[in-house]
């Protein structure tokens, strides 16, 4: 059996169902272990920040959650678009399965940001370009979920949700580049692909461990939810 045929084999919800269960279980375990490692590095190995004292330790969950909130939206819009273009049931189900997890991480990014902003900026919230565009991302997730919940026919709900998800994807680069395009209170990226990270290596290690933990958590949660959706629909 060639790789191409296998790919389509797993595009069927029935054959994907047991595979999703196996991957989800492995990811739940991996996420828990990586989160423990990340918390250990974040609280016991990484040193106190010279400027922000201990308040900076919010970074380990804040940045990881913010990355996931944007990344999950792009992947959700991708699956929604595939479902819309090729009428594949599983793709649309994946998009629906990812939305609540993405919304949760967006909320976490905003919440941890507020509690970090108060001691460092002096305000829980400011109408800064980065913060405002991230808030819009939360509304996009909630709008996607509300729209799908409001339509009884699941296939029609998939198509309507897909349109919203695809239009909303324009917001993701706005969030990402907001700190460069506008004069924001929010700081620029500490980690980028093009230059060395501007932080201590143990701090970076803690952040990457938490990001990886959230990543596996997202895979586990989405696959567990898509299994529920498959059972509910088919």
């Amino acid at each position: 059996m060639s790789a191409t045929i296998k790919w389509f084999w797993f595009a069927s919800p029935q054959t994907f169902f047991p595979l999703a269960g196996v991957i989800a279980r492995a990811c739940w375990v991996g996420a828990a272990l990586l989160a423990l490692a990340g918390l250990y590095v974040g609280f016991f190995v990484a040193p106190t920040d010279a400027q922000q004292g201990e308040a900076y330790r919010i970074i380990f969950i804040h940045v990881a959650a913010a990355w996931m909130s944007m990344f999950l939206y792009v992947v959700m819009a991708f699956w929604a678009a595939i479902g819309l273009a090729f009428n594949t049931r599983l793709s649309s189900m994946m998009a629906s399965a990812m939305a609540p997890t993405g919304a949760m991480f967006t909320f976490v990014a905003l919440w941890t940001g507020a509690l970090w902003g108060r001691p460092t900026w002096g305000a829980y919230w400011v109408w800064d370009a980065r913060l405002t565009s991230e808030l819009i991302l939360l509304f996009l997730y909630l709008g996607f979920m509300a729209l799908q919940a409001a339509i009884d026919d699941p296939r029609r709900a998939d198509r309507a949700g897909a349109l919203l998800a695809i239009v909303g994807v324009v917001n993701v680069p706005i969030i990402y580049y907001s700190v460069q395009w506008w004069n924001t209170l929010h700081q620029g990226a500490s980690v980028s692909l093009t230059r060395a990270p501007s932080m201590a290596s143990t701090m970076l290690a803690g952040m990457l461990l938490m990001a990886l933990a959230f990543w596996l958590y997202s895979i586990a949660a989405s696959l567990t939810r898509v299994r529920c959706i498959i059972q509910e629909r088919e």
Partner: peptide
């Protein structure tokens, strides 16, 4: 947390 306990533990 060096005086930031409310913020750090509130976030976590």
């Amino acid at each position: 947390m060096g005086g930031y306990g409310f913020y750090v533990w509130g976030a976590y």
